[in-house]
Structures are given as C-alpha cells and as structure tokens.
Amino acid sequence: MTDKEYHILFNKSPREAQDTLFEEYFSYVYTIVFNKLRSCAVKEDIEECVSDVFADVFEYFDNISEGESNIKEFISTVAIRKAINMFHSLSSRNGRTFSLEESGADSITDSENIADNAERADLRRTLLRLVEELGEPDSSIIIQKYYYGMKSNEIAKNVSLAPAAVRVRCSRAIKKLKDKLIDVNITLKEAEL
C-alpha cells in the first residue's frame, strides 16, 4: 500500500484503511519487534508492543500530509523505537542491566537484516500474487520456468502444450507481468529476487 492509497482509503473509510494497513504490515512489524525483544520478552510482551506500534502509526500517520513521509519507513521507525523502549522497560523491571548490543538483539549482519528480509518477503508475496493473476497456464509456465528452472520441453509436458507454444506464452506473460509490476511501482531490478 502506498502513502497515496492509504490516504485515499483513509478519507473514504478510516477503519478500513487501518484494517488494510494492519494486514499488510503486521508480519513486518512483528519481525522487527521480535528481533529486538527476543532476549527478554515473552510472547504477550511482543504482541503488546506490536499493538502499541500500530496504535501510534494510526494516531500519528494520519496527521502527516500525503507525500511528506514514506509509510513503510514510518512504520519501521515506530516499530524500532517502540521495541527499544519496551526492551529497556522490561530489562529494568526484571532488574537486568544489559544493552541491546550485549544481548545480541541488535547485532545483525547484512545477510540477516530482519527489515530487509521482511521487505523481500513482502516483495515475493506481491510478485507471486501478480504471477497468479496472469491465470492458467501462464502462471504455471512462469513458475516452472523461473522458480523451478525447467526447460520449455519439460513445461510443455506439464501444461499439455507444444514447446513452441510454451515459449510464446511465456514471452507474452512476462510482458504482462512487467506491466503489472509497473502498476504497483516495482522495478524489474527489485523483482529479480
């Protein structure tokens, strides 16, 4: 969901906008919060923090003018700050005096960057949804070719088409997919996971 889409939906129905935002970003927020709190929190604390993140997002993002902020960056910032605050609160309540760095909760290498992984997972879900929207047999052809690395002859047997027809359908499906990616503001470079 883009900032513009959120603001349009919010003006139409604030509740629906909040529900949509929650559904779209729940996994992303939960991953960030879990990463920060895993060393000191129980499941209920993590869920409470996630709820607090969305409460703040709903309260403050609606006051930001459209175009002033990126919704995903805003949500990420709120989630990180809320999780760090809860970490300190839980640590002091339990009599612990160690930092995030000491607990290992903040020492993530580039290959393990939780926020990046969550963004890539979100991008993959969007890409899969767009491939499925192509319909059969195009979606099956694309998945078999690019996900499983199958050759046109192998795919042809699975979808009951001639290998030449598979190549033509694949070429057309890729063009349709490129248009769909442009419609949701995803570049081809981003889509190449």
Rank of each mutant, 00 (worst) to 15 (best):
K4G: 00
E5W: 01
H7C: 05
I8P: 00
L9R: 02
N11T: 07
N11Y: 06
K12M: 06
K12V: 03
K12R: 13
S13M: 03
R15T: 11
E16F: 04
Q18R: 15
Q18S: 10
D19W: 04
T20Y: 01
E23I: 09
F26Q: 11
S27G: 11
V33W: 04
V33R: 02
N35E: 12
K36Y: 14
K36W: 07
L37W: 01
L37K: 03
L37E: 02
V42L: 14
K43Y: 11
K43I: 11
E47K: 15
E47N: 15
E48M: 11
E48V: 09
V50M: 08
S51R: 12
F54I: 06
F54Q: 03
F54Y: 10
A55I: 15
V57T: 08
F58E: 02
F61N: 02
N63T: 14
E66V: 14
G67H: 05
E68G: 08
N70W: 06
I71N: 00
K72R: 15
E73Q: 13
F74E: 04
I75A: 06
V78I: 15
V78E: 01
R81F: 11
N85L: 12
M86N: 08
H88D: 11
L90E: 04
S91V: 11
S91D: 03
S92F: 09
S92V: 08
N94Y: 10
R96G: 08
L100R: 04
E101M: 11
A105Y: 01
S107M: 13
D116F: 14
N117P: 00
E119L: 14
D122H: 14
D122T: 14
L123E: 05
R125M: 09
R125E: 10
T126D: 10
L127M: 14
L128Q: 12
L128A: 14
R129C: 03
V131R: 00
V131G: 01
E133V: 01
L134H: 01
E136M: 09
E136K: 11
I142R: 00
I143G: 00
I143W: 06
I143P: 00
K145M: 09
K145A: 15
Y147I: 13
Y147R: 10
Y147L: 15
Y148C: 08
G149K: 05
G149Y: 07
K151Y: 10
K151F: 08
S152M: 09
E154Y: 01
I155S: 01
I155V: 13
A156Q: 03
K157V: 08
V159A: 05
V159T: 04
S160C: 08
S160R: 13
L161D: 02
A162Q: 13
P163F: 04
A164Y: 10
A164V: 13
V166C: 03
R169V: 02
R172P: 01
K175G: 04
K176H: 07
I182R: 12
V184Q: 05
N185V: 04
T187V: 06
K189Y: 09
E190F: 06
A191M: 03
E192L: 14
